[in-house]
């Protein structure tokens, strides 16, 4: 049943067995085309497997569905160094921590250090903090002079 497939999918997610996540997500989609959780699991597993082209294909395949995969797409575009395209996509998105991290990384690559620091400040206002974030802020300050 669909419930059994999702239980299997969940186990693979917990084990970070990314190839099996994709496989079982596809099995769900064969029974329930357009299932949002299955599509999100597939796209995230492909991104986490560094299969950026395949992730973009899965996002494209779902483009007619009422599911917003823009933040994933923006990340994939960033990985392909299509920075302005990624930024255009981000402008319309809710500023979740993931989106703010991505935005700051894009600005950094574009050499727009003031905007980069702005994004980091928004993350700190959301009480998002980590050693990695501190390292990136330091890098931006150094690069920004």
């Amino acid at each position: 049943s669909l419930e059994d497939l999702f239980a299997t999918l969940n186990r693979h997610v917990d084990n970070n067995d990314l190839a099996k996540v994709v496989k079982v997500a596809d099995q769900v989609l064969a029974i329930a085309p357009g299932d949002e959780d299955a599509i999100r699991c597939k796209v995230v597993a492909l991104i986490r497997s560094e299969a950026i082209d395949k992730a973009l294909n899965a996002i494209k395949a779902a483009s007619s569905l009422p599911i917003d995969l823009s933040s994933y797409k923006a990340y994939c575009l960033y990985r392909q160094n299509k920075l302005e395209e990624a930024l255009d996509l981000i402008r319309g998105l809710e500023k979740t921590p993931m989106v703010l991290h991505l935005e700051s990384q894009i600005f950094y690559r574009l050499g727009k250090m003031d905007s980069c620091i702005d994004s980091y400040e928004k993350l700190q206002k959301l009480k998002i903090d980590s050693d990695d974030l501190k390292a990136n802020i330091m890098a931006s300050l150094v690069a920004g002079g």
Binding site: N10, C41, I47, R48, Y78, P97, M98, Q105, S130, D132
Partner: peptide, 21 residues
């Protein structure tokens, strides 16, 4: 310039499947 860590990657999470099982 220094390499920025890809924190966005680490922030991409699987959806919760709790209510699907």
């Amino acid at each position: 310039s220094p390499i920025v860590l890809d924190i966005a990657y680490n922030s991409i999470e699987f959806p919760s499947l709790e209510n699907r099982m």
